[in-house]
Computed example of a mutant assay.
Amino acid sequence: MNDVIKTILNHRSIRKFEDKALTDEQIQVIVQSAQAASTSSFIQAYSIIGVKDKEKKLKLAELAGGQKYVAENGHFFVFCADLHRHQLIAGQYNHDASEVLESTEKFMVAVIDAALAAQNAVLAAESIGLGAVYIGGLRNQLSEVSSLLKTPAHVLPVFGIAVGYPAQQPDQKQRLPLEHVYHEDEYQQDQTRYINQLKEYDEQISEYYEQRTNGERKDTWTGQMAGLLSKPTRMYMKEFVEKKGFNKR
Score class of each variant (00 low, 15 high):
Met1Ala: 12
Ile5Val: 13
Lys6Asn: 10
Thr7Tyr: 05
Thr7Ser: 11
Leu9Met: 11
Asn10Ser: 14
Arg12Cys: 05
Ser13Arg: 07
Arg15Phe: 04
Arg15Met: 05
Arg15Gln: 08
Arg15Lys: 14
Phe17Gln: 00
Lys20Trp: 07
Gln26Met: 14
Val29Leu: 15
Val29Thr: 15
Ile30Met: 05
Ser33His: 02
Ala34Ile: 09
Ala34Pro: 06
Ala34Trp: 02
Ala36Glu: 11
Ala37Asp: 02
Thr39Glu: 03
Ser40Gly: 14
Ala45Gln: 04
Ala45Ser: 15
Ile49Lys: 12
Gly50Cys: 14
Lys52Asp: 13
Lys52Arg: 15
Glu55Tyr: 13
Glu55Cys: 11
Ala61Thr: 07
Ala61Gln: 02
Gln67Leu: 10
Val70Lys: 01
Asn73Ile: 03
Asn73Ser: 05
Gly74Trp: 00
Cys80His: 03
Ala81Gln: 01
Ala81Thr: 01
Asp82Phe: 01
Arg85Met: 08
Leu88His: 13
Gly91Arg: 13
His95Ala: 14
His95Trp: 13
Ser98Val: 12
Glu99His: 13
Thr104Pro: 00
Glu105Tyr: 14
Lys106Glu: 12
Lys106Cys: 08
Lys106His: 10
Phe107His: 01
Phe107Tyr: 13
Met108Gln: 11
Met108Leu: 14
Val109Phe: 04
Ala110Ile: 06
Ile112Trp: 01
Asp113Thr: 05
Ala114Cys: 10
Ala114Gly: 08
Ala118Cys: 05
Gln119Ile: 07
Gln119Asp: 12
Ser127Gln: 02
Leu130Asn: 06
Leu130Trp: 05
Leu130Cys: 09
Val133Gln: 00
Val133Asn: 01
Tyr134Gly: 03
Gly137Cys: 11
Gly137Phe: 11
Arg139Thr: 08
Arg139Glu: 09
Asn140Gly: 08
Asn140Ala: 10
Leu142Ser: 09
Ser143Ile: 14
Val145Phe: 04
Ser146Gly: 13
Lys150Trp: 02
His154Trp: 10
Val158Trp: 02
Gly160Asp: 00
Gly160Thr: 01
Ala162Lys: 01
Pro166Leu: 01
Pro166Ile: 01
Asp171Cys: 09
Gln172Gly: 10
Lys173Ala: 04
Leu176Asp: 00
Leu178Cys: 05
Leu178Pro: 02
His183Ile: 05
Glu184Pro: 03
Glu186Asn: 14
Tyr187His: 12
Tyr187Lys: 10
Tyr187Glu: 06
Gln189Asp: 15
Thr192Asp: 12
Arg193Leu: 12
Asn196Arg: 12
Gln197Glu: 13
Gln197Gly: 11
Leu198Gly: 00
Tyr201His: 12
Asp202Trp: 04
Glu203Gln: 15
Gln204Gly: 09
Glu207Lys: 15
Tyr209Arg: 10
Gln211Tyr: 03
Lys218Gln: 14
Asp219Phe: 10
Trp221Arg: 04
Gly223Leu: 07
Met225Ser: 09
Ala226Arg: 10
Leu228Val: 05
Leu228Tyr: 14
Leu229Cys: 03
Lys231Asp: 11
Thr233Leu: 12
Met237Pro: 00
Val241Ile: 14
Glu242Gln: 15
Lys243Met: 13
Gly245Ser: 09
Arg249Gly: 14
